[in-house]
Design a protein around this nucleic acid. Structure first.
Lengths: 237, 237
DNA sequence: CTAAACCCTCACGCCACGTGAGGGTCAAGC
DNA sequence: GCTTGACCCTCACGTGGCGTGAGGGTTTAG
């Protein structure tokens, strides 16, 4: 059993020296020995523990959580499940965000605001549209349609066209609907629907009927939409 | 034109008082007046600016970026597009992470490790399950392989077999690992590794894991290699 | 006149380290 | 023995977007 200095461990592990010192500071990985000069000396066991830390960390566990798991024998499974739902939530939020950003970009393109003077106006309008979105998640569908106005509707429309394009591409490329990318799109799809229905199951149901019973909805080909939805849905369970 | 105090603005906007003060601190939103007692007084224009800040922030722009957009007239579109691709990247990573976590949970279920003793083993196995190489690393490796070319790769292989033979011989002859000949071999060993990893510590770490966790790597006996590496390494310090 | 509600300015805490500053240690070569 | 350079050490501040007090002044209703 031989000891390694912090620099050697750093080179072997790919972690920085500062990181290893940090782990020591917070008590996550304290080298089991020190040289006379105070150098940190890592044993083989220390290295093994470092491997464990790294694999747990690569799954997004916080250093504190890793410490709990390794030292106090906390349930890995529970930590991971918690992390899983947290990650799901993150993905949902990021996907919704993506749609919003794409929509706003489209909105900016439409208005073609090159001058910085017009830009400030646009940003203010943006605020209004945003405001409507959040407020109206509490209101009914009818009121929403009336209040949204032209710009907002067109923004939402762009989000849909954008997403539909990506799903169609994925589908035609034969990508497995269970793959992460497609699952992300499914999440995005759902969040766009939710944004429109405000989470009201009744509204969602009637919306579904609309798509089932028509061939053309607001300029979209309903059959294709049903088709793509089925594709996204096929890996749900 | 009437002024509002920070508490009123807070109630109207839903932001905390601390947040508004923070915006003042960093110069993002400085109220245009103060009362005699030093109270922050927000004008209608300040409120409008706050709306702009909020709508930009709701799309994930950093406060610094918002400041640049609002004050220096930086292109909103560019910021948003940059943000869009960043968000896409995030979604990809999160999705990949999600499936990893789910996979590991499934693995834990299969092994049904209730005892903390078995758990540590599992965590080590975890490292095996993890892909040894990240995508980027794989790309780097591929590039390197392309650079080296077929002939180069075969030449490197010959150098390895050659070196391994010499180290094995030295070892079996009981030569002191601290002797100059063996030290030379250690240097040679290291430089061959460096040639392969390109000096990337992450790749080196992954490579180390590969050798640690397999019995046969590219036709080499991993146990023997580990053994010889230990022999060379034993005189390092 | 007082109590409650409101406001102010420091200033530390979070998380996982990066990035110096300022200084000791160690092996190699002169 | 002395220098050089590559190591190593311990502080300690910075990151982002605030939360959360501490300690104190201001305004307003009763």
């Amino acid at each position: 059993m031989q000891y390694r200095t912090i620099g050697e461990v750093s080179r072997d592990s790919g972690l920085t020296v500062r990181t290893l010192r940090h782990y020591d500071e917070i008590g996550l990985l304290t080298p089991s020995a020190r040289s006379d000069a105070g150098y940190r000396l890592y044993s083989d066991d220390d290295i093994a523990r470092l491997q464990q830390v790294r694999s747990l960390q690569s799954m997004g566990l916080s250093l504190a959580a890793i410490g709990s798991v390794l030292d106090r024998g906390l349930a890995v499974r529970d930590s991971l499940e918690q992390l899983l739902s947290a990650t799901d939530e993150q993905i949902r939020r990021q996907s919704a965000l993506r749609s919003r950003i794409a929509g706003v970009i489209a909105l900016l393109d439409q208005h073609d605001a090159a001058t910085s003077g017009a830009m400030l106006q646009l940003i203010e309008e943006l605020a209004k549209v945003e405001k409507h979105y959040t407020k109206e998640q509490l209101d009914t569908l009818a009121e929403r349609a009336a209040d949204l106005g032209d710009a907002g509707m067109r923004a939402a429309e762009t989000q849909w066209t954008d997403l539909i394009d990506r799903v169609r591409t994925a589908r035609e490329s034969g990508i497995d609907p269970a793959s992460p990318q497609v699952r992300a799109m499914a999440t995005e799809w759902q969040s766009l629907i939710d944004a429109f229905t405000g989470g009201d199951p009744g509204i969602r149901a009637s919306l579904g009927q609309v798509w089932q019973q028509n061939d053309d909805v607001a300029g979209f080909n309903a059959a294709e939409i049903r088709d793509l939805a089925g594709y996204l849905h096929s890996a749900d369970s």
